[in-house]
Amino acid sequence: MSETGYKPDPDNATGGRKSAGSQPAFPMRRSIFRKNLMTALLLAPATLWLVVFLVLPFVAIAIFSVGERAPEGGYQAALTFAQYANLPARATAFWNTMVLAPVGALACLLVAYPVAYYLALRAPDRWRLILLALIVIPFWTSLLMRTYAWIYILGGRGIPALLAYVGIEDLRLINTPGAVLLGIVYGYLPLMILPIYVSLERLDRRLLEASADLGATPLSTFLGVTLRLSLPGVMTGFSLVMILLLGEYLIPTLLGGGKVFFIGNALVDLFLQSRNWPFGSAIAITLVLVSVVVLIIANRISTRLSGARRVDLI
């Protein structure tokens, strides 16, 4: 080698064309403040939206949660943590949810990954968009309707009726844990597929060739490169689905026959049936906190997985 050690290249200082990781150079620092101000201005409408539709309701619910239920239902002002102390009364619902959310998200992932993989890396180009559309379009119709479709498919006039023709009588598919799991996988599949698809789609195909070139079998290329580099997408999809599942109540009610009680069901009942707003609010606050914890953990894992780069989850 003719050269001893690497000499920094002057062109590199512009942070330009050469490498994504080049250090920010001095001339850029001056504009950082201006850039931040600009960013703040651009984000102002979004910030306002967040305050009005997220922060204010959250504050209202927080206030409710330290109040008391009025005799006829609703809220009456108070400062008590009795509602929080009463949380164990919904322990079963919390427990069911804590099992449902990760198990449902995992089941969803197991189905979604191969689909996303096929779409991003195997599907013929001209089919890709069509297939993606087929996955996304049902999402535009109400989940209630689509879940109802499953009630008919799994119900006595659906698959069990077909099975009756071949002599399998009185099989019950609807209102079983399996039906709930199926409904969840079906309902949340696009939310899992899309982020994984995006991360796989962004994957530099040459990395796969490089891996093969270096002697890796297709399996170890998949494990060492493809899967590994799609993990941020997996984490995004997983945490998205998991957080939505924390509040899920429709699918368990419709496909599980209302026999399995999740925290979402508890919330609906507390607000709409027994009108115990303070207790419902305390549960809602707890649920939000759990979701935030889930997000933080997921973000940590994602960040670690993808090296130093940060990954935005939502």
């Binding site: 530099d204 040459r206 990395l207 060739e209 490089a210 891996s211 093969a212 070139d213 270096l214 002697g215 890796a216 079998t217 297709p218 490169v225």
Partner: peptide, 16 residues
């Protein structure tokens, strides 16, 4: 490719 006794330096390097 993974059974061939050759190795390649890719155009954009394709580093992991």
């Amino acid at each position: 490719p993974y059974r061939r006794p050759v190795n390649m330096v890719f155009q954009q390097y394709a580093l992991f």
